[in-house]
């Protein structure tokens, strides 16, 4: 098991390096000279030249990449063109805000999805199953930015129960009541899709596992419902963990719409702003961080799967 973990971590290294390479290339694939973007279109030639030297753009590309890699490893992601602040700092704050939202949505969505799918799979073909299938289908089909706006209209504008947007003011405790009230609408909106997808995956996995011969064999040796359920859970968990990992990744990366609708100052919100302001260093930083997070997430998922299923440790 330990050797598997070591091998898996070693596999992640070239992937992470590849990510930095792509993000670095992004800068040079963007139309126009990166220096002009910083200096502005009317800057005099000697200023442009000085900037070029200051940023190292006069050096050959491989050397520039190494310089970039060195800065990234040292935690320096450059300076935002729009605000003049360090990208690393802005990003850390935004990422923390997004993480709060994503974790909340993950807890709600995963618990609801597993419960819904588990019950449906265990009672396949019954009324409960059909009901759960309808609910999860609605979950995956409803556009969540639309749902977000409907929730705002209903809960904030009409009923005035919950705040419509933003986080609680800066000094409010992170999981205090005020913050939770602000989180409720975006979290519930975000949780809808993972609920549906997780429910469908769990239902399929549980239903398929119950059809397998070893379940008959467990009954044949007298195991009761609870024990059979334990075996089924253990068998489906590697599959489910893969789905959960993927969904958590989507929650982190794909929250642009939700964060925009609810004005939540997370990475999605920041990304949206950076795109409109052509703030290349911020853009680079966000993409790099989300990509590296995905690499890490996949690593965790793979190790967890191997811990649960001995057959996966061989590869």
């Amino acid at each position: 098991m330990l050797s598997y973990i070591v091998r898996r971590v070693l596999y992640a290294v070239p992937i992470a390096v590849g990510v930095t390479l792509l993000v670095f290339a992004l800068l040079h694939m963007a139309p126009g000279d990166p220096v002009n973007a910083v200096a502005g279109p009317d800057a005099p030639a000697d200023v442009v030249e000085a900037l070029r030297r200051a940023y190292g753009f006069d050096k050959p590309l491989p050397y520039q990449y190494l310089l970039y890699l060195g800065r990234v490893v040292g935690g320096d992601l450059g300076v935002s063109v729009a605000t003049g602040r360090a990208v690393a700092g802005e990003l850390a704050q935004a990422f923390a805000n997004t993480l709060v939202l994503a974790l909340g949505a993950a807890v709600v969505g995963f618990v609801a999805g597993i419960a819904l799918g588990g019950v449906a799979g265990w009672h396949k073909g019954t009324v409960v199953d059909h009901l759960a299938t309808v609910v999860s289908l609605i979950g995956v089909s409803v556009p969540h930015y639309w749902l977000g706006m409907v929730m705002v209209i209903l809960m904030a504008v009409e009923l005035n129960w919950l705040p419509a947007m933003g986080m609680a003011s800066g000094d409010a405790p992170l999981f205090g009541l005020e913050q939770v009230r602000h989180m409720l609408l975006p979290v519930l909106t975000m949780a809808v899709i993972p609920t549906g997808i997780v429910a469908r995956s769990v239902r399929a996995a549980v239903g398929e596992t119950l059809e397998r011969e070893f379940v008959q064999a467990l009954k044949a040796k007298g195991m009761r419902r609870g024990a059979v359920m334990r075996h089924v859970v253990r068998n489906v968990s590697p599959t489910i963990i893969a789905v959960l990992g993927l969904q958590f990744g989507y929650l982190l990366g794909g929250s642009i719409l939700i964060e925009t609708v609810f004005s939540w100052p997370g990475t999605g919100f920041l990304l949206n702003e950076a795109i409109f302001k052509r703030d290349l260093p911020v853009l680079q930083g966000i993409i790099l961080m989300l990509a590296l997070f995905f690499v890490l997430l996949n690593l965790v998922v793979d190790v967890a799967q191997a811990a649960l299923d001995p057959r996966m440790r061989r590869t």
């Binding site: 397998r212 467990l218 001995p310």
Partner: peptide, 24 residues
Amino acid sequence: VEDLRGKVVSMVFQEPMLALDPVY
């Protein structure tokens, strides 16, 4: 019936690869 299964009557299945739980 569950008390009888495995205790009074038990079964050897045709394909042990399928009848044994792969993760235990």
